[in-house]
Design a protein around this nucleic acid. Sequence first.
DNA 1: TTTTGTATTGAATAATCATTCAATATGAGT
DNA 2: ACTCATATTGAATGATTATTCAATACAAAA
Lengths: 214, 214
Amino acid sequence: MNISPKKISDHQLEDQEISINHQKLIDATIETIAKRGLGDTTIAQVAKKAMVSQGYANFRFKSKENLLLSSLKFLSDEYKNSWQRIFEDNNLDPVGRVIKIIENDFSGKIANRNKIAVWVSFYSEVKFRPSYLSICQKQDEIYSSQMEKLIKEVNILSNQSFLTSREISETYLSMVDGLWQRILFDPKMYSHVFCKDLIKKYFRNIYADEKRFV
Amino acid sequence: MNISPKKISDHQLEDQEISINHQKLIDATIETIAKRGLGDTTIAQVAKKAMVSQGYANFRFKSKENLLLSSLKFLSDEYKNSWQRIFEDNNLDPVGRVIKIIENDFSGKIANRNKIAVWVSFYSEVKFRPSYLSICQKQDEIYSSQMEKLIKEVNILSNQSFLTSREISETYLSMVDGLWQRILFDPKMYSHVFCKDLIKKYFRNIYADEKRFV
DNA sequence: TTTTGTATTGAATAATCATTCAATATGAGT
DNA sequence: ACTCATATTGAATGATTATTCAATACAAAA
């Protein structure tokens, strides 16, 4: 039996698998939302940017709604992968992990103005589209609980007991959301360095002995 | 010369003055955005809710864009008035003022899910509509600088010098934005009490001697 | 009552856009 | 070379919606 590699054409891929065009359309959707806003994003523009016909974009995703949903899912997974890698990295101690988390949340890949514009566009529809809400919420719940567990470890190691791990992680998460939003308004003032330093200073204040929070 | 009060009909009002219909339309716009989202808000729906004809809504505000802008301006002014009253209240000492500010930011009038949904809708368009940006930004700049000055007073009174007033006020402002956004996702978990307590705990940690941060 | 200027209506218009689908291209298997 | 299944096109369709405007209601003044 010949097991040499065969060329696989698109039509042989299952629905769940990702074809070139599938990903091209998702990328184009994100770029279009970032450039023009969710309200002014049309299938025609996305298709043009992805260099496929308008009809094809609709055919491939069944509906515009579904294309948007898939794009949100993609963004959401991209973010999740980035922080999951940090939680799974066994070479890190708790404080080192917190620092990596902060750096990830304000890395160029995650916290750039285009991506934030897309996130906020979807956030703004969360109240009216349960499907958006469930994607955003499920991810956030896991992140929250992982974060709280991590802070609990740091609390124990540093004998910090005035603030609970829940309080510290909720403060962290709300600050991140707030700072992202502010990056959208004024990216110059809210530079990545500014945001990271602000958050590190917060931790430095709590864990006075821990010199790694710069 | 007769100076007895005259009935003033709408057409005698200047552009800048507010007629009944003007405000009815703005209220209806905010309600419609809160219920259906900015993208699904049509002049027809707003006009229906305000109980005027569709043509009139357009005539009165010249364009949909202008109606939306006026509604954002209204929300923005409402918020500004609420915190300006606190900054101008001479009966308050610095810590009392901070507490009032926190309570205002999470009062039912300001931090309810409908209003937040409207805010976030506009935020999400800020990158694409400079007119939205300038309304939001101008307001925020004043609030920021007032807040920083206030924190500086508290820092001095309490001999706190590790965190600068800028750092504390920026942390506060980003937490408020982040928590508002989270209220949108999960209003049960992020209750007003939860949000206020979280923020007060932040201040309590900084100003350990100040018993008023509950 | 009649006139006159403004307020308000609601139907018509024109533009935009998601969706459909018949037609065509592509490329693997025979 | 031919067949056949799938991929892709792009023009047509129908729905939605902001905007316009001629027609009407209204209310104050004469």
